[in-house]
Design a binder for these strands. Structure first.
Length: 281
DNA sequence: ATCCAGGGGGATT
DNA sequence: AATCCCCATGGA
């Protein structure tokens, strides 16, 4: 019998499916999630979150279970559209991932789509990780920060032009960058530091800032968010990403990242209902 | 600021 | 089967 944790306002399925993580599967009623060098098995029934492969402290941190979503909803509910999105997925949480893993995964996500991102990341783990397993579920660990990522091998694994970025990331002087240390910097500085890395522009930097470094004001603008923002806050006009981010901060302030996550998931779920399950990221 | 390469997948014809 | 479309980054 696995241990369990009582959770409040947490929706495991919505959270995992909200585009923050790629390394998970559902099998036999369980989610199998891979984080760094371990497999974690999870199942939620109402407030009961059953887990194995990790401890309770890990889950509380990883899924940010202490964050008061009700307070965030109260603030964001001034906006009717975000309120609707929030109420559709009340337990969707912004996670706190390992910064290195998050960075590499989102470099892989560049100009791609979810099925391919997942394949590419699995390929990386197969190349540079080691076998890991839990309860018969087998997988590979995530490459360590010092792994000798090699462009040609990654190209053969289907990473495309992202292979060059990843190779440069480990080959260059970038290895000295203390990712976790960025947490203590102001948002703009942390973002600028990430954007110095190969293959990291504004959007991917914001993903890393929001999903792994605790910057709740980060507002990654991808095409889905762009569409939603233009429709709802610019009367359908085409506007540049800087304007979108500016409007997001005016409307959502430090909760912009949460607003982004609900809007993104809501938009994708609506699209899924219309027929297309796996959209671009 | 604007245009475009780049690469593979999905949708469309 | 050929063609169009998509997309974050980076460089012109």
């Amino acid at each position: 019998m696995s241990p369990f944790l009582l959770v409040h306002r947490f929706d495991l399925r919505a959270t995992l499916n909200s585009g923050q993580v790629f390394r998970f599967d559902e099998q036999g009623g369980y989610f199998f999630l891979r984080v760094r060098d371990r497999v974690i098995r999870l199942r939620q029934e109402g407030p009961r979150l059953e887990y194995s492969g990790c401890d309770e402290a890990f889950l509380r941190d990883f899924f940010q279970l202490e964050v008061d979503l009700e307070a965030i909803e109260k603030e964001l509910s001034l906006d009717p559209f975000v309120r609707k999105a929030m109420r559709s997925f009340p337990g969707l949480r912004v996670m706190r991932q390992d910064p290195w893993e998050c960075l590499v995964c989102f470099i892989c996500s560049s100009a791609s789509n979810i099925p391919r991102i997942r394949r590419n990341i699995e390929g990386l783990c197969r190349l540079y990780g080691h076998p890991i397993s839990l309860n018969g579920y087998q997988s590979f660990s995530f490459p360590e920060p010092g792994a000798p990522l090699e462009e040609e091998a990654m190209r053969r694994a289907g990473l495309g032009f992202r292979a060059r970025y990843l190779a440069a990331l480990t080959a260059g002087c970038h290895r000295g960058l203390d990712l976790s240390g960025l947490r203590r910097h102001p948002y703009e500085q942390a973002q600028a530091a990430l954007m110095q890395l190969p293959g990291v522009g504004e959007k991917i930097a914001d993903c890393v800032l929001l999903f792994s470094l605790g910057f709740s004001q980060a507002f990654p603008v991808d095409t889905w968010i762009k569409r939603v923002m233009q429709q709802n806050y610019f009367r359908g006009r085409k506007v540049s990403n800087p304007f979108i981010r500016q409007r997001a901060w005016e409307k959502f302030g430090l909760n912009a990242g949460y607003a982004q996550q609900y809007l993104f998931h809501y938009a994708r779920m609506q699209r899924a209902r219309a027929g297309n399950v796996s959209g671009p990221l």
